Amino acid sequence: MDLSLPRRASLKGRDFITLADYDREDLYFLLDTAEELKRAQACGIPHRVLEGKSLGMLFGKPSTRTRISFETAMTQLGGHAQFYTAADLQLAHNETWIDTARAMDRYLDGIAIRLYNLPYGESRRILTTMASAARIPVINMLDDGEHPCQVLADVLTVREKLRTFEGKKIVMSWAYSPREKSAGVPQGWVIAAAILGIHLTLAYPEGFDLDDDYMATARRLADESGARIEIVHDMREAARDADIFYAKSWGSRTLNQEELAARDQELRQWIVTDELLDLGNKYVKFMHPLPADRNLEVTDAVMDGPRAIVYDQLENRLHAQKAVLALLL
């Protein structure tokens, strides 16, 4: 299968750590390739473009969708995926990340890493350290700053459902969870929206601001693309006329446990219900990266109802990641 779509440059050999390293043409090249590979899979057209290639997958935290989708992606592309945790490698005996990257570089064609829940910024430092030490592509399967593979799949899903971003209102909203979760998805979304010229409404309670560096980068890119990124602190206001309502929880970097506990009842009101979605466009769709805390972030009625496209969204993790692997490896 020929993946050499007409464009100015190849993506081969590049890292996929942050979407900010990619421009509008790059992202559309990835999205177009994902659609092409998805169509090929549906039609039974062989596309084993990574025959004989191996991807090393290093997981600092377990995952359902990430592990299964990456392993399946490599199989469908004709390659092989290896799974390991730090405990499986000499990292468990204090081998450095640099030496680990150099060893993997001599055996593999790509490295994929899922690493977070370290002091903020440390996971990204490790990813960039490994990328500097290795000559092969390093792919971010989620760090403390961003989840670029999830966001690429999200954008693919939105484009499939809406057919265009122009004139559409896409909402990324905070939702309640007792568990502190990564802000990687919303931070990736502000970057993607800014690059692609998307109107994105960010909704979250006071005290749950995103990383200042991500917001500054998003504003700079939005000035170039004409994107609009709005911030509101009212879930109902955000939902009005929405075409896509995307919700997930993320942790606060400024509020302590006592402050969060004092606001618990207020924060529990940030839940997606059918009544909330009734404020949106007639055909509004609900998205969530999963796993969802049911009846905390979103009600069962929404999750299992006709507005939810969460399973189409998770399927597109497979196709988006196949595009990343096929073009970078």
Rank of each mutant, 00 (worst) to 15 (best):
Q187L: 10
H147A: 10
R179V: 15
R159H: 09
N94Q: 12
V232K: 05
H319N: 11
M130I: 08
P306W: 14
T96M: 11
S182A: 09
A183M: 10
P306A: 12
D274C: 13
M287A: 11
S182K: 06
L108W: 05
Q41C: 15
N256I: 04
G44K: 00
G251T: 06
R125E: 06
A326I: 06
R102L: 08
C43S: 12
S249R: 02
Y214P: 06
L327K: 02
G56I: 15
G167V: 06
R179W: 15
G121Q: 12
L55A: 00
F245P: 00
G79K: 01
P289E: 01
L58H: 02
L3S: 08
Y204N: 02
E25L: 15
E95D: 04
L318K: 03
S249Y: 03
R240L: 00
L277E: 01
L108G: 01
I68N: 02
H80I: 06
M57W: 08
D211A: 11
L27I: 11
L31E: 07
W250F: 00
S63P: 07
S4F: 15
S177V: 06
Y214W: 03
Y28S: 09
K248R: 01
A101P: 04
K322G: 01
I68M: 15
N94Y: 15
R163C: 15
V190K: 00
R114V: 03
R263C: 03
D264R: 13
R24E: 12
F165N: 05
R102D: 08
I191R: 00
L290E: 04
L200A: 00
K12S: 13
V138I: 14
D99C: 05
D264I: 12
R219V: 04
A42L: 12
A218N: 06
L200M: 04
Q321V: 10
E206V: 14
L152G: 07
M104F: 05
